[in-house]
Computed example of a mutant assay.
Amino acid sequence: MQITAQTREPAEITAIALKAYARIVDIWSLTQKDAAALADMSESTWKRARKPGFAGDLTKDQLLRLSAVIGIFKSLELYFSEPLARTWFTRPNTGPLFSGARPIDTAIDGGLPQILAIRTYLDALRGGA
């Protein structure tokens, strides 16, 4: 039997998403404040959520944010070499979505719509569209 998102329990999906997100936060060297804001959590909730065995629930918006960030990470890793892929999200960017700001800052300020726009932008770069 193949295990898909439809056959997983919500707590298992949350645990997997948080584990992946925590790894990305570490790889990107995000501050606790930025990691929490990007996930739309308080810093205290983020500190609890990144520990194994977190029993809290995430909202649909929070899960979508984590999923989109994971997609951003994957696109960066596929499109750029490692040094740039690991710093792209936290470097000032003159691209059309960022106006000289860091992508993470626009993602935090713009919320889920901006996070999804960044993911679409990177997918388009990667796909040559």
Rank of each mutant, 00 (worst) to 15 (best):
M1V: 12
Q2V: 15
I3V: 15
I3M: 11
A5N: 10
A5D: 12
T7R: 11
T7Q: 12
R8G: 01
P10A: 14
A11F: 14
T14Y: 01
T14A: 05
A17F: 07
K19T: 15
A20G: 09
Y21A: 08
A22V: 01
A22T: 06
R23N: 13
R23K: 12
V25S: 06
I27G: 04
W28F: 15
S29K: 13
S29R: 13
L30D: 05
Q32A: 14
K33M: 12
A35C: 06
A35F: 10
A37I: 04
A39L: 03
A39G: 00
D40W: 04
M41K: 01
S42M: 13
E43M: 10
S44H: 07
W46M: 09
R48C: 03
A49H: 03
A49V: 05
P52G: 09
P52V: 13
G53I: 05
A55G: 14
G56V: 13
D57Q: 13
L58P: 01
T59M: 01
K60T: 11
Q62W: 02
L63I: 08
L63K: 06
L64D: 08
L64G: 00
L66K: 00
L66D: 04
V69Y: 03
V69P: 00
I70Q: 09
F73C: 00
F73G: 00
F73Q: 00
K74C: 07
S75E: 06
L76R: 02
L78N: 11
F80R: 02
F80Q: 02
S81H: 12
E82H: 11
E82K: 09
L84I: 14
L84N: 12
A85H: 06
R86P: 01
R86G: 02
T87P: 01
T87F: 09
T90R: 14
R91Y: 08
N93K: 08
N93I: 10
G95M: 06
G95V: 11
P96V: 15
S99M: 13
G100L: 07
G100W: 11
R102P: 07
I104N: 01
I104R: 02
D105C: 07
I108E: 08
D109Y: 12
D109N: 10
G111Y: 09
G111E: 07
Q114F: 12
A117P: 01
A117E: 09
R119W: 02
Y121D: 03
L122A: 07
L122I: 04
L125A: 10
G127I: 04
A129M: 11
